[in-house]
Design a protein around this nucleic acid. Structure first.
Length: 496
RNA sequence: GACCCCAUCGUCUAGUGGCCUAGGACGUCGGCCUCUCAAGCCGAAAACAGGGAUUCGACUUCCCUUGGGGUCACCA
């Protein structure tokens, strides 16, 4: 049997990371079995349709390199792959069921339905359901031409069993299953009809979808039975939760693929992380880092956990940092440039004379980045003018303002005298200078760091200064010295 | 509320009756290294929800309780 799986999102916005985790499972499963991965757009709810959502979905998948074999853009033998283009098909299938006596037209107004639900709830009914008003009307009682919906005639007795690949058999009582609407009054199918018809017609072999669908799966099975079709294999995978144990949503932080991308998470990281959320390689294999190829080799759908997993932003950060550290510096530079440009620190295109500086900066920050975007805050002082640090920030630890000023002046003199203004050249004399002044090297370095970056935390000093350049470094030192001098002056006048 | 799913450190997980005085990873804490911050290295604290049953023996099997989650639309 050919493995055929699908991702069937409804175009309502940027794809959610939880949904993408399910896509990762689908995609891995398809690819490792030489099967097909299909993208199908379920746009049957016109009220929720978002124009650019299909683009966003496709871009997100492409970013993660989750390629599809059939879909709206690439076509395929079972198209079209957008449900709104298949309307006639669903109507035809619904009519077929009506003719078989397995479905019926219903023209109960929404208001009446709402009243019934209210009453049932008030009466303490467990599962509010349609009251069957139109269920046993003669077939011609409602004309196909008047507004109506089509409902499935669900048997009132017996039970329906879902065979789930991961959970085994899950049985539901038919009397608790409502006469599901298949076709809405606007002529569009509901999810239940469309998904069954399309999965069957597109020869889907495995429906790998989120847990939340399990309760509606018996409805789908009933539909397969009504059509006389064999249901595919169902695989319900757990939901992804936020820190508080609820379904992951915006209030937990980044949730869309776009969010993660914009914050500077690497697609490799996200793929790796998502695959490990609810799946692990098993006994004796304690790897955390998996390349796409390794995942393809190792992933096993049957090993997916049944319990829901909490999305850990901390672990994602660690993973991303690990990927960044292992990356080729040239490649890292390429990926960093857009973030510098977005922040307005580097012009686009990158001026030729700047690229050397950028190359030089990368090793300074590579092991300090968790997200690519962090590069902005970490290196902005190299590109833009800094505010001169306030005097109190310029007084070294356990040092007087006078000592600090003297130290900075000495550094300035030293740096002006160097033949080559680069990190390797400047470090030994700087250390010697500290010794000569009777100061710990760290003290003086930190002082210079603040003076040249206005930050207490910054990349390694000498590399940073080299990137800033001699002229601007000396300028910043001068300004810092002036500030200190002023402080000293006001302090001494205050004493008098 | 009803139905359904789930249940090992704070989090992601290993574990399919004896290998478990429960392993790894993130995070946390401590130390080393160190020009700050990271990174790296070393170390520590940290879990089998509770109760029955089966068994010579249960983290591992069964039942109940508890807890968490999901679903109950002319949304998917």
């Amino acid at each position: 049997m050919t493995i055929r799986v699908r991702f069937a999102p409804s175009p309502t916005g940027n794809p959610h990371i939880g949904n993408i985790r399910t896509v990762v499972f689908n995609w891995l499963f398809a690819r490792q079995h030489n099967g097909k991965f299909i993208l199908r757009i379920e746009d049957t709810d016109r009220s929720r349709y978002t124009p650019n959502a299909v683009k966003a979905i496709e871009e997100s998948l492409r970013w993660l390199r989750l390629d599809w074999d059939e879909g709206p853009d690439v076509g395929g033998p079972y198209g079209p792959y957008t449900q709104s283009e298949r309307l006639a098909l669903y109507q035809e299938k619904a009519t077929e069921l009506i003719e078989k006596g397995l479905a019926y037209r219903c023209n109960c107004p929404t208001e009446r339905l709402e009243v019934i639900r209210e009453q049932q709830r008030a009466a303490g009914v467990d599962t509010p359901m349609y009251d069957g008003h139109c269920r046993n009307l003669p077939p011609d009682a409602i004309s196909p031409d008047e507004p109506h919906v089509v409902r499935l005639k669900v048997p009132h007795t017996g039970e329906t069993t879902v065979h789930d690949m991961l959970r085994g058999d899950v049985t539901f009582e038919n009397k608790r299953i409502d006469d599901q609407i298949l076709l809405k009054s606007d002529g569009f199918p509901t999810y239940h009809l469309a998904v069954v018809v399309d999965d069957h017609l597109m020869k889907i072999s495995h429906i790998i979808r989120a847990d939340e669908w399990l309760p509606s799966t018996p409805k789908h099975i009933l539909l397969y039975q009504a059509f006389g079709w064999t249901p595919p294999t169902f695989v319900h995978v757990p939901l992804v939760m936020g820190k508080d144990g609820k379904k992951l949503s915006k209030r937990h932080g980044a949730v869309s693929v776009t969010d993660f991308r914009q914050q500077g998470y690497l697609p490799e990281t996200v793929l790796n992380f998502l695959a490990m959320l609810g799946w692990s390689p098993g006994e004796g294999d304690e790897r955390e880092i998996f390349t796409r190829e390794e995942l393809l080799e190792t992933f096993e759908l049957s090993r997916v956990k049944l319990s829901s997993a909490v999305f850990s932003y901390d672990k994602l950060d660690w993973l991303n940092g690990t990927y960044i550290r292992n990356m080729d510096p040239e490649e890292l530079l390429e990926r960093l440039i857009p973030f510098w440009q977005d922040a307005g620190l580097v012009p686009s295109p990158v001026p030729a004379e700047m690229s050397e500086t950028l190359e030089q900066i990368v090793p300074l920050i590579q092991e300090r980045l968790k997200r690519l975007k962090d590069v902005v805050e970490l290196t902005d002082f190299i590109f833009t003018e800094i505010e001169t640090p306030p005097a109190e920030k310029l007084v070294g630890k356990k040092m007087t303002p006078q000592e600090s000023l003297l130290a900075l002046q000495a550094v300035q003199a030293l740096l002006s005298s160097l033949v080559n203004f680069d990190a390797i050249t400047m470090e030994p004399p700087m250390r010697q200078l500290a010794k000569d002044l009777g100061l710990k090297a760290g003290r003086i370095f930190n002082l210079v760091r603040v003076a040249t970056s206005n930050k207490r935390v910054a990349p390694p000093l000498f590399g940073s200064i080299e990137a800033i350049g001699r002229k601007r470094t000396l300028q910043r030192l001068s300004r810092a010295e002036e500030t200190l001098a002023q402080l000293i002056a006001t302090e001494s006048s205050a004493k008098k």
